[in-house]
Design a protein around this nucleic acid. Sequence first.
DNA 1: AATGAATGAGCATTCATTCAT
DNA 2: TATGAATGAATGCTCATTCAT
Lengths: 217, 217, 217, 217
Amino acid sequence: MNGDSFICICIFNMARSTQTLSRPRSVTDKRSAILKAATKVFAQKGFFNSKVADIAEKAKIADGTVYLYFKSKDEILHSIFDRAMEAFISEGKTQLADLKDPIEKLRRIAELHHSRLGSDRNLAVVFQVELRGSTKFMREFSAAGFADYLNIIRKTIEEGQKAKIFRKDIKPIIAAKIFYGALDELVTNWILSKKRYPLAPMADEVLKIFLKGISAK
Amino acid sequence: MNGDSFICICIFNMARSTQTLSRPRSVTDKRSAILKAATKVFAQKGFFNSKVADIAEKAKIADGTVYLYFKSKDEILHSIFDRAMEAFISEGKTQLADLKDPIEKLRRIAELHHSRLGSDRNLAVVFQVELRGSTKFMREFSAAGFADYLNIIRKTIEEGQKAKIFRKDIKPIIAAKIFYGALDELVTNWILSKKRYPLAPMADEVLKIFLKGISAK
Amino acid sequence: MNGDSFICICIFNMARSTQTLSRPRSVTDKRSAILKAATKVFAQKGFFNSKVADIAEKAKIADGTVYLYFKSKDEILHSIFDRAMEAFISEGKTQLADLKDPIEKLRRIAELHHSRLGSDRNLAVVFQVELRGSTKFMREFSAAGFADYLNIIRKTIEEGQKAKIFRKDIKPIIAAKIFYGALDELVTNWILSKKRYPLAPMADEVLKIFLKGISAK
Amino acid sequence: MNGDSFICICIFNMARSTQTLSRPRSVTDKRSAILKAATKVFAQKGFFNSKVADIAEKAKIADGTVYLYFKSKDEILHSIFDRAMEAFISEGKTQLADLKDPIEKLRRIAELHHSRLGSDRNLAVVFQVELRGSTKFMREFSAAGFADYLNIIRKTIEEGQKAKIFRKDIKPIIAAKIFYGALDELVTNWILSKKRYPLAPMADEVLKIFLKGISAK
DNA sequence: AATGAATGAGCATTCATTCAT
DNA sequence: TATGAATGAATGCTCATTCAT
């Protein structure tokens, strides 16, 4: 299943890049500008309270132009997710490729999770808050990249079990969700907090508990 | 004039209480019916896509009647949260009152968390999905009952640390968030899953990992 | 202030007494209370911005009770006009009855016009502003008591013409409108002015100009 | 104050015309079309009973388009008044500029007043009836152009007094209101009358009486 | 007569989307 | 491609009126 997903993503990336490369740079730039503007606007006002006109203004284009790049307001939200998730998973795989130790892998995942979202607050807000504003989106979200992400964690846990580093009495898929949930909650708290603090160090706290929690010793 | 008013008010109050006593059921029922209907509608369509008319229809009342019990559509969402959170925390405190062992307390919290949400899917959807659709609400949410909830967990962890059952090198407030995040993620997954499975057993999985993770041994 | 109102009501009741006597006192009182409350509310907020509930509250009765005395919100406005106009014309006729000199009659009319409206600001506001908010009402208004009022003035002018006191080259009906318009405008100005000054003395100014204007000399 | 207003109006007109000229004709036309349609609709149904949709329909545009030109239904009413009053006063000043004799000036004012309103019944209805439907508007109305108008009349009367043509025992500002009130009442009567007759000749009747009334002789 | 909870028609305004230029 | 004026469907909320008690 993991293999499948991997292939899937690869194909997807290829398809994407083909598309992207064949377009003049300005096209990509404008598309990017819209996504960036939308991320900011959605983060500030929320998806439902954001007007397409706000996005267009922030992207310094006319309202109608948005529709040359996206079919609808909904699609913009999707694209934000797609683009970020794609980059995220792709970078995750790259970073995990040279690691063997499951513990190190989980550490890398946690660090990546928090450093990524911690470095782009707007994106984080959209991920933690806006993407969850509708069951409709959540299902698609869940079905798409998110499942891939969970699978990477799950496989790592399974590897650890095979290597007798991790307990065998835990279910890898559930443990993966627990791991993800813990990381996720800290991001959400970070976003909603009035205090501004670095997110990255939080990853350690999760690891401290989770790794001991699933340790075979 | 003062005397008159006084009598007036007395009569008025009496009238009120008579009325209220003879009617409490219908008033309460109607309010409840609206909340129940709204929970269902919000769970199905999402808050922003739900019309007040939908709620009224499901509650079998006229549109305008909704506004005799709630000031706005927003207030309905708030009330759903308030009522559920209040009941949740109140029951939590009751159930924890007779427990001494921090481990048992955390177990009880986890079980309660999952059994409560697991027994009312609509409410769970609203909690997991709709309440997070806006930073605005999330902040209020966070500021209100949610903080109480986290505090209960945090204190329990602190107790465990004092009793030398739990590790001292973890920060209770962060550990509390991790615990909550883990439980929460399983609820979200349960909601979004196409498969229908009981939520309650998931609590054990969280406990298995978390308790070992924070154990002093 | 309480005393004033009381006298006011007494006068009013006397005028109405034919109708009124056949009804139990409480009925009349409640009807009056509603009209008084409505006059105040309409004067403050304007007819269209006034709620029936506001009127009921000010009259210290239940919303529904209003409809035991008036068929609709519109009818309340009508009744305010009818009652006041009736009282006004009736008093006018009484006061003019013992006068022979057309000049004295016009003087009496002008004084009455300004003293009446000048002594009840709320009523004046309703008369000058609210009653004119709809052509629909204006036509009925025009058709009803207002025509009577104009006729009294017109006849007086005609008398003066016959007595060779007033010019014959003016059309009585138009002169009557001019006289009325002049008086009316001063009332409107008085109402809208931020300054508070007595209205009654204004009548003299109108008379000074108008009487000379129509004088035969 | 009169001088100031004059300059003010001039500047305003210049600014207006610059703007207007730089816009494509269609923009101006659409704005005008809305105002014209609104005047008609308000005249027929009254402001509060008119729907924005009615105006849009009559102007042959979509409902939403109204809001590209006006911020609210209220603003439409204001604009009708502003535009008409501006044109009215501006034309009045022009026409009075070459006249010296105060009597001639008053004659011109009266004629202009009646010929203007007499030539656009819908506008007249809005002016006489709708604009007076709320104290709120009346105050603004009174504060704005209306005061200018009264001042023009007042100054003319003062000139006449200085020239010893008019009586010195009348207060110019009150006389101005009387003159205005007389003209105004005839307009209102004309509007409400079921008979259709020319309004303009009425001006003479007012002049006949008023000029004799304030004459020094 | 009196109440006031319930009704439901009614409407200003917004904003995603389209399309003529 | 890009524009932005125009569209018109969509909806939360109000409030005059009714009616069961």
